[in-house]
Design a protein around this nucleic acid. Structure first.
Lengths: 328, 328
DNA sequence: ATGAAAGCGCTAACAA
DNA sequence: TTGTTAGCGCTTTCAT
């Protein structure tokens, strides 16, 4: 920058003005500064800029790079952030790389706000983070922590699922849960409640799982090893449902002929006809927009009370759910 | 940092030493500094750190957040980067957010090296980037640009595919290409060459596509609308193959009964029995390691000549490929 | 419209 | 082992 200033014969302050597109420099000076900068290949250094003005205007997003639903969220976070004048940086919390590290990387790169997609961290840790910067959690509740949260009304989605299956005539409806995955606890709880409300308390059967294909497969093997299969299984998410269907398929169990399967997420694969999965759709676009707006507003006013946006999900009935073949 | 120093009663330089984990501070001081920092919630500010030392030791990775193969790469980039003492920041080039912006975000946050996963940018642009920082391109060749590249020997993979199909008795083998996607041009070219070598020049049929399900579906519709279907289709990647199979399936065309389908990537879904896709596996772990090592070495010696790592892929035969039903 | 000067929070010589 | 002293490249008052 000093070079540019020298070249044009003005002070660095003026060059700074020009680059920030602020009023206070004559058109002529502006033109010459820009020309000189271009010639010298000068680019403002954001580290220095950051340091000097204390604000980075960048939002850090922590995601699990394998979860397709989170990919959808990320795609919708960018445009909203840009609209509000913020930059976005991503950090992945892969298996083997813990979430804490992902967050640290973002924070140490001066992200002033954090959007955590389906974080595993407990309330205490979230609260601690929330006190240090503006954070929004997506996909799970975070009561008791100083963070905003955006999530789906899991109970509504689950009610629709159970209602749909019961309506088809199912009674033995099992649930492969999502373990510690985002929303899993709520879905598990809602499943239990819904079953009871339908008078099916005795049929409640929760198989421990996780939000991936392997867990679905394992759960499938567990079910197959049992005395008699349920007539329907509600999986923790679509990936889990896929693994489950895989195992059932390999064992020669027809879906939905012998067992109906329902997923959760409506990932972009579920509508493919091979898969044609009955599932629950969450509104990724609106979730992303809420999350970004929440943190940006919190940045403007750190004293804001934690807010929560709860969006309604919607059951999407496809080909993996049907009436049970034989009555019980 | 000044706060921490004051609290402990030492100079800021000492605190700095402790945080950089450099020798030169007594264990006792170290302990007290860490304790005070923890209490005050102090975290080194990387903007200032960067500015002061001129090096960020962070690698920026540009990815398409929807491509599962790239997710695999990202997962393997982290451990290797960490091993070499580098931080990693991600930026997504989603549709609607162009790659250039993704790169700028990373650069402006002072990433000193760039790993571009399947970039769309042309040689000129890559060269320009390569002159500005250390860059490695993954998944496509980048000859003529000052960048390293890590890719698969596409021709070998494609040869195996065509050889496999020809061996099964196929002659009318079409290829739905990956458009401008990473590796697509090479695969398309290799397909043509392989077909010719097998004396099937007349049967060469390239349908324009892309590396996603929609393009596969569209290509499927195009094929169905044609005079007579090919007996086998080699898709640009697994996602494209999935879309293709979807369309064939909906049209009542049996796979592999009437048409065999082969993908590319061996994404973690292809082994599921619903899908059970014959495909080509690329070694994501080694590709990631090479890319990281390349940029790190280039950072140490900017004058290094551009290097290229070309890894061998491997055909994985599953259930979507079989002998054609009727001879022609 | 332009310039001078004082930081922003850290690192890196060098001195003590 | 610890402290002192300059910067890093920019923004931001406050003068001119």
């Amino acid at each position: 920058m000093a070079d540019v200033a020298r070249r044009v014969g003005v002070s660095r302050a003026l060059v700074s003005l020009v680059f920030r597109e602020q009023p206070g420099a004559s058109d002529e000076t502006r033109r010459r500064v820009l020309a000189a900068a271009d010639e010298l290949g000068y680019r403002p250094d954001s580290a220095a800029r950051l340091l000097a003005r204390g604000r980075s205007r960048t939002i850090g997003v922590v995601l699990a790079v394998r979860q397709t639903f989170q990919a959808d969220l990320v795609e919708s976070i960018y445009p909203e952030a840009e609209r509000l004048g913020y930059d976005v940086l991503l950090s992945a919390g892969a298996p083997g790389r813990d979430e804490r590290k992902a967050v640290e990387a973002l924070l140490s790169h001066r992200c002033e706000a954090l959007v955590l997609l389906g974080p595993l961290a407990g309330t205490a840790r979230l609260d601690e983070l929330g006190r240090r910067s503006a954070v929004a959690v997506v996909g799970r509740a975070a009561r008791g922590a100083r963070v905003d949260s955006v999530r789906t009304a899991e109970a509504k989605g689950v009610n629709q699922v159970v209602g749909h299956l019961v309506g088809l005539g199912h009674r033995r409806i099992a649930h492969v849960d999502g373990g510690r995955g985002p929303g899993a606890a709520e879905r598990r709880q809602a499943y239990r409640t819904a079953m009871r409300r339908h008078g099916l308390a005795d049929a409640i059967h929760v198989v421990p799982g996780a939000h991936n294909e392997e867990a679905g497969s394992a759960a499938g093997r567990l079910l197959l090893a049992g005395d008699h299969l349920p007539t329907a299984v509600f999986a923790g998410n679509d990936r889990c449902a896929m693994g489950l269907m895989d195992t059932l398929d390999r064992a020669g169990v027809a879906v939905p002929g012998e067992v109906s399967v329902v997923g959760y997420d409506d990932s972009h694969l579920s509508h493919l006809s091979h898969i044609d999965l009955t599932t629950v759709r969450q509104d990724a676009v609106r979730m992303a927009e809420h999350a970004v707006r929440f943190v940006v507003e919190r940045l403007d006013d750190a004293a804001l009370a934690p807010r929560e946006a709860v969006l309604d999900p919607k059951l999407v009935v496809r080909g993996t759910s049907a009436a049970p073949s034989a009555p019980h």
